[in-house]
Computed example of a mutant assay.
Amino acid sequence: MSNPSYAELSINGLWKNNPALVQLLGLCPLLGVSNSAVNALGLGIATIMVLVCSNLAVSLVRGVVNTAVRLPAFVMIIAALTTCIELLMQAYTYELFQILGIFIPLITTNCVILGRADGFAAKHNPVIATYDGLVMGVGFAFVLVLLGGAREVLGTGALFANMHLLFGEIARDWQITFVQDYKGFLLAILPPGAFIVLGLIIALKNRIDQQLAARKVHAQPAAPVTSRRVRTTGAVD
């Protein structure tokens, strides 16, 4: 199978085939923990690490794994990597790990990771598979952080609160307050708010795609008009 170019992989992972906005995969963690930017970023980084490492591992063993046990083997690889990430978070970001709760182990069953492992990494060399995992993970994490940031601003009037849970004491003062004495908008940080904000983001992406397609059509050169000679009698050659 021919390998796609890095530019093609980047465009697909970040925009055209974004796992969260186009494929609509991994919606459980996407909607479950995206009530703040720090929660979204923490889960996004964990997902990127598992996706990159699992794609690499699957690509390395693709030639020695029997097709009868392919999917169970891939799940075991993803589960082992998720356990490693879980232990790292317990060691270095324990409070954030407690907040994210069950959504960290659920990375094992994330459709984005298993889908890329079986649909792409198992068919391409390790370098291409690793890069695909990186851009797909970044695309998923970007939507996760965008959704979490939007909900945090709407719900609390601030952004980047409690970033010290992920980056340590250096990030304690990173919070940006947009509205002083904000009364709060409870719907934004509840699960229904996640569906509403995600729907708006998807609608915005679709609108941008439509405008880009329209510009592309208008930018195409018009077909040349061929001239025809007309006889003096009025007949056309």
Rank of each mutant, 00 (worst) to 15 (best):
N3Y: 08
L9S: 10
I11R: 11
G13Y: 02
L14H: 06
K16M: 13
N17I: 12
V22D: 09
L24Y: 05
L30V: 08
S36W: 01
A37M: 14
L41D: 02
L41K: 00
G42E: 10
I45P: 03
A46N: 07
M49N: 09
V50N: 03
A57Y: 00
V58F: 06
L60C: 13
V69E: 04
R70G: 09
F74A: 14
V75Y: 02
A79W: 00
T83F: 06
T83G: 13
E86W: 00
T93I: 11
Q98D: 14
I99P: 05
G101Q: 01
T109V: 15
C111K: 00
D118S: 10
G119I: 07
F120T: 06
A121H: 07
A129R: 02
T130K: 02
G133W: 01
M136I: 15
G137Q: 07
G137W: 05
F140L: 12
L144D: 06
G148N: 06
V153I: 14
G155N: 06
G157H: 02
A158D: 14
L159V: 12
L159C: 12
H164Q: 14
F167T: 08
G168C: 01
A171C: 13
R172K: 12
I176L: 11
K183M: 13
L187V: 12
A188W: 05
I189N: 09
L190Y: 07
P192H: 00
F195K: 01
V197M: 12
I202S: 04
I202Y: 02
Q210V: 12
Q210P: 11
Q211M: 13
A213I: 06
R215M: 15
A219L: 11
Q220D: 13
A222G: 15
A223R: 01
P224R: 00
P224A: 03
V225H: 05
D237N: 13
